[in-house]
């Protein structure tokens, strides 16, 4: 099995990805995660302006048979949420790295991203599960 793991992203063991764009970043869940969850039916999003520390839950994503907390790859303040997901949570299945992004944040401390996996390590990690 192989999953799409874009090289420019960093990944958590809990399958969230982080796309650093200077002082802001985009967060979503990986291709592997969306496939494991299967048809996503609901997502709970945080409020814009909410702040979360690294590793804290900022929302949940649900399929018919599973629910999963969404964790912050790095600490920060939410500056945008993908409102489209409220009506079309399936965008996460069809385009986890594109239209299925979940939140954008103002990054607190970019150094917190240092312990995240790079694409190669994450791909190997997925293959091992």
């Amino acid at each position: 099995m192989s999953w799409n793991t874009p090289a420019e992203l960093k990944y958590m063991r809990s399958d969230e990805y982080l796309k650093l764009e200077g002082e802001t970043a985009t967060i979503g869940i990986s291709d592997y995660a969306q496939e494991q969850l299967n048809d996503i039916v609901f997502i709970e999003l945080p409020d814009v302006g909410a702040e979360f520390a690294k590793g804290k839950s900022f929302g949940t994503v649900e399929s018919v048979k599973a629910a999963s907390d969404l964790l912050m790859p790095v600490g920060g303040k939410v500056i945008a949420v993908n409102d489209k997901l409220k009506d079309q949570p399936e965008l996460i299945n069809s385009s986890p790295y594109g239209d299925g992004w979940i939140i954008k944040i103002q990054v607190g401390d970019a150094a917190e991203a240092n312990d995240l996996m790079d694409a190669a390590a994450y791909a190997a990690y997925c293959a091992s599960r």
Binding site: E62, S63, V64, K65, A66, A67, D69
Partner: peptide, 12 residues
């Protein structure tokens, strides 16, 4: 709405 329930979400 089963994922709210204990058999799936367990301690959460």
């Amino acid at each position: 709405l089963r994922p709210r329930e204990q058999d799936i979400r367990r301690d959460k």
